[in-house]
Design a protein around this nucleic acid. Structure first.
Length: 108
DNA sequence: ACGGTGACGCTCA
DNA sequence: TTGAGCGCCACCG
């Protein structure tokens, strides 16, 4: 059966290069709207790099959030994908946020 | 079964 | 704008 974290990884894998998503939105996408924190835990243990681009998941506030290899590394990766980071810590969600469409979510 | 632990998010001073 | 406080939840010992 598909576990919670597997759903998290699947959802994360859908995020296109050059775009980002948030822990909270992923939680909603997999029908666990209050599990944003658990989503972070799942990504922390992500065993599918780079299939599951966990660096594209940031905080709802726009702050990059944590990263197993250090937030510096996370920022560098996002920049490589063309995402601008303000003040070395903020992502403009208005420009780079990716929205899951209902059709895909159903597959989870 | 139970309690501790975060890559979170929201509220309020 | 910041920081403290607190609720949430899956995972692990």
């Amino acid at each position: 059966m598909i576990t919670f974290q597997e759903k998290v990884w699947q959802a994360t894998a859908m995020i296109p290069k050059g775009q980002v998503n948030t822990y909270g939105l992923i939680a909603r996408a997999i029908k666990k709207p209050l599990a944003s924190r658990a989503v972070g835990q799942a990504l922390h243990c992500n065993p599918h790099w780079p299939q599951v681009p966990c660096h594209r998941v940031v905080r709802g506030t726009g702050e990059v959030g944590g990263f197993a290899g250090g937030s510096k590394k996370k920022i560098a990766l996002l920049r490589q994908e063309g995402i601008e980071i303000d003040n070395e810590r903020l992502v403009n969600l208005k420009d780079y946020l990716y929205s899951f469409d209902n059709r895909r979510i159903r597959l989870l």
